[in-house]
């Protein structure tokens, strides 16, 4: 337990090891640790941001979905409206067409009736003339009596 040169030797060794540690050990280890710390912090921040973004995206998608539903509903509604409109229109045209067809048919019938009546009238005239001729047995002056017949025909 004597104090001797060991003291000096230890002091020199101490200095040497401290210098070595300061130059070659501490900076790389500390640098790596700080770098990792920074990376982790960045990673955590990125994760947080991503989570936030996800939240936003979710909100947005919900909104979009709602919008789309509304749009779809309105489209269906307007389609329904349009459909009933078309049906109404078709009904109306049908009614109009039917009326038109009916009218033309009526007109035709009337025409036909008139024509038939004219024809009938003519034939009745001739027939009554022939009948009268037969009844009288004599030849009647067709000219003298035609006035009478015409009057008769007009009465029919």
């Amino acid at each position: 337990m004597n104090i001797n040169l060991t003291l000096i030797g230890q002091m020199l060794a101490f200095v040497a090891f401290v210098v070595f540690c300061m130059k070659y050990v501490w900076p790389p280890i500390m640098g790596a640790m700080q770098e990792r710390e920074r990376k982790i912090a960045d990673g955590l921040a990125a994760a947080e941001k991503a989570e936030h973004d996800l939240e936003l995206a979710k909100e947005k998608s919900v909104e979009r979905l709602k919008e789309a539903k509304q749009e779809a509903a309105s489209i269906v509604e307007s389609a329904n409206k349009r459909a009933s409109q078309i049906v109404d229109e078709a009904k109306q045209t049908a009614v109009v067409e039917a009326d038109r067809v009916k009218a033309s048919a009526q007109a035709e019938i009337e025409q036909e009736v008139n024509r038939a009546r004219e024809k009938l009238r003519g034939q009745v005239g001739a027939l009554s003339l022939a009948g009268a001729e037969k009844i009288l047995g004599a030849s009647i002056d067709q000219q003298a009596h035609s006035e009478l017949v015409d009057k008769l025909v007009a009465e029919l």
Partner: peptide, 17 residues
């Protein structure tokens, strides 16, 4: 002391983030 230096130096070499 040399053991300390070698051990820590080898780690310092390997140290990465």
């Amino acid at each position: 002391g040399v053991v300390f230096c070698l051990l820590f130096r080898s780690v310092a070499r390997k140290a990465s983030s």
